[in-house]
Amino acid sequence: MRLFDVLGPVMTGPSSSHTAGAVRIGLTARKLLGEQPAQAEILLHGSFAATGRGHGTDKALVAGLLGMQPDDENIPRSFTLARQAGMLFTVGTINLRGAHPNTALLRLRGADGHKLEVMGSSIGGGRINICKIDGITTNFGADHDTLIVHNLDTPGHVSAVTTCLSEHHINIATMQLYRSAAGGYAVMVLECDQPIPAEIVEELRRMPGIVKVTSLNL
């Protein structure tokens, strides 16, 4: 463990998993949406549902959606700040079968109406795992610049995406492939060593068979 992981992080209490991790889930979901949500439905599962209020998990998720970092002193006031910023939100509970105990499901809608559903787990020490995007497995830690591509489960998409990245001199750190069912939707999750420029996202969106492209730049 690095020195400043043992001493640190600086964070708003009370819990690295239930508060700091929850802020990061909200913040990552905001970045994946590409903007501050106009509307957010926040659903808490497991320990998040049972102890979330006492740990401020609900406020932490809203704070993240507003763009705050885990050490922001305004986290306790995030509900008020969200109202002032015109972000509509609801907080409820949900039972997600088989999910990590510290999991939240965020259903977001952007100002132009585009939607994104993000399921994230807080796995300890403030680290997180984005388990699903729009219902399909993704499993990434949101600590790298990440490209997420939803495509039809037909041949050729992986090579098209990796070729596009290589043409832009972007190095892939890790790559994962998932699909909902054979012949249905598939997802590629590529953690990269460089930020993903907007033109790549646009280029990929225009490719046949590509359904959705989402990027996370830290």
Binding site: V6, L7, G8, P9, V10, M11, T12, G13, P14, S15, S16, T19, A20, G56, K59, D71, E73, I75, P76, G125, G126
Partner: peptide
């Protein structure tokens, strides 16, 4: 107590033992 009251702390090594 500050940690429990959602104030800013240094996890040292954790929030619970800050």
């Amino acid at each position: 107590e500050c940690n429990a009251c959602m104030k800013r702390i240094v996890a040292a090594p954790t929030a619970g033992s800050c």
